[in-house]
Simulated assay, not measured.
Amino acid sequence: MGRSGRVTLSDVAKASGVSRATVSFVLNDDPRQTISVATRERVLEAAQDLGYVVHGIARALREGSSRVVVLNVDWGMEGNFSRSYVRGLDEELAEHDHLLLVRHGHAIPEATQKVLDTITPRAVLRLGEVYMQGHEPIEEDWESGFAANAALQIGHLAERGHTRIAMTLPDYDFPLTETRLAFAQEAARRLGLPLLERFVVPRPREAGAAAVEAFLTAHKDVTALAAFDDDIALRSLVALRDLGHRVPEDVAVIGFDEAEYGSLATPALTTIHIDAEILGRIAARNALGIDSGGLAPVAGRVVVRASV
C-alpha cells in the first residue's frame, strides 16, 4: 500500500469502515462482545491486507501476562536431549501463538525475578526441574522416562555380559548427577547386578588418564564404564587409549544422550539416544493449561557402535 511505519488499530478501523473499538473486539476475540460475521470478516481481511501485528505489550497488559514462556537450561545440560526438548517446546508454543525464551546458565532467583518483572511471562520452566526436586520415579518413568533411559544404558552392558560396572561422572557441579546415579543404581539392582562403582573423569587429558588409571588399579574386576554423558564417555575412551587399554576388549564404554561427534571417535562410541521433542510439547501444553492427551514420551534407544 506504499505506507511506512507500524500499522495501527486506527488504520485497520479506517480500512474496514468500523470503529477502533470494534477492531479491538474482533482482533482480541472478546467473548463479551457480539460482532456480526460480516463485520468480523471485514475487519480480519483489512488487518491481513495491511499486515497488522498485535502489539505484544498491550496484549500483555490486557491478559495479565505476555505470550512468552521462559525456559531455564542449566550449564551442562546442553545436549541432544535439551535440543530436542527445546524444539518441541518452541514448536508447540508457536502453534498456540506463544513465544519461547531460553536462558542458559544457573537460574539465579534474582535474575529470574528480573525476567518476571520485565516481560511478565506466561510461565517459567526449568529443564529437568521435577527431578531436581527429588521426584521419585513412578513405574511409567521406568517405561519411557528419564529412569528408563538410565536403565537402558546399564541394561545394554548387562546384556553383553558385564556385571561389574562403574559410572564415570563429570568434574563440575551438575544438578542431575545424583538423580542419574540413583536411577542407574536402581536399574542395576533390578537386573541383579552389584552396586555400581563411581568416579570422576576430570579435565585436562592427563588428569583424566590419571583418574582412570587409579580407579582401574583399585577395581580390577570392573569391565565396563557407563558414562554420565557422551562428553565424559569420550574423555574415558581417550584415557583408556592413552593407558594402553583396548576398548571394548579390556574395558567397554557406553555414552548417554548421543552427541554426533561420538561416531567420529576410535572406536566409535556406543550411546543412548533420547528424543525429548514430545516432552517439550507436553510441557508447552501444561504451561498453557491445554490437555496433553494423546502425547506420550518416546522411549530412548541404544545406538550400537564399536565401544561395547
Rank of each mutant, 00 (worst) to 15 (best):
Y172L: 05
F174D: 15
L99I: 00
A188V: 03
L101F: 05
T118H: 03
R189V: 06
Q185G: 08
L116G: 04
E110S: 14
Q113C: 00
L195S: 14
S144D: 09
I108T: 07
I154D: 01
P121V: 04
A188I: 03
V130L: 13
E206I: 00
E136M: 11
A182V: 01
H104G: 00
A151W: 02
R190I: 13
Y172T: 07
H135P: 01
V115G: 06
E110L: 13
A111K: 14
R122I: 01
L116F: 09
E95A: 14
F199T: 03
P202Y: 11
L191S: 12
I138H: 13
L169C: 10
H98S: 06
P204K: 06
T168R: 00
V130M: 08
S144R: 15
T112G: 05
A123G: 04
D117N: 08
D173G: 07
A188Q: 12
P194S: 10
V130W: 02
V124K: 07
R189L: 13
I154L: 04
F183S: 12
E140K: 06
G161D: 10
S144Q: 06
F174P: 01
E110M: 12
G161P: 08
P204I: 03
L191Y: 10
L193C: 07
A184L: 09
G134T: 03
L101S: 11
T179E: 14
L176M: 11
L157I: 10
R190M: 13
P175Y: 01
Q133S: 12
A123P: 05
A184M: 11
L125H: 02
G145P: 05
L191M: 13
P202H: 09
M167N: 06
A182I: 01
P194K: 02
T177E: 14
T120K: 15
L101V: 12
T177H: 09
V201R: 10
G155M: 07
R180C: 05
G145Q: 01
R189E: 15
W142A: 01
A188K: 14
L157D: 14
L169Q: 07
L176N: 07
R103Q: 15
G155F: 03
A184S: 15
R122H: 15
G134M: 03
L101N: 07
G155Y: 01
D117Y: 00
V130S: 15
E110Y: 06
I154W: 12
I165F: 04
A184T: 10
L169T: 12
I108W: 10
I154P: 03
F183R: 15
A182W: 11
T118C: 04
G105C: 06
W142D: 04
A111E: 11
A188W: 14
E129Y: 12
F146S: 13
T168W: 00
P170F: 05
I154M: 04
R205G: 00
L127D: 04
E139L: 09
V201N: 06
W142T: 00
H104A: 06
A150C: 13
H156M: 08
F199V: 04
P175I: 08
D173I: 09
P170A: 09
P121A: 11
D97A: 01
E186S: 00
A187V: 07
P137C: 04
L152F: 00
G145H: 02
G155V: 12
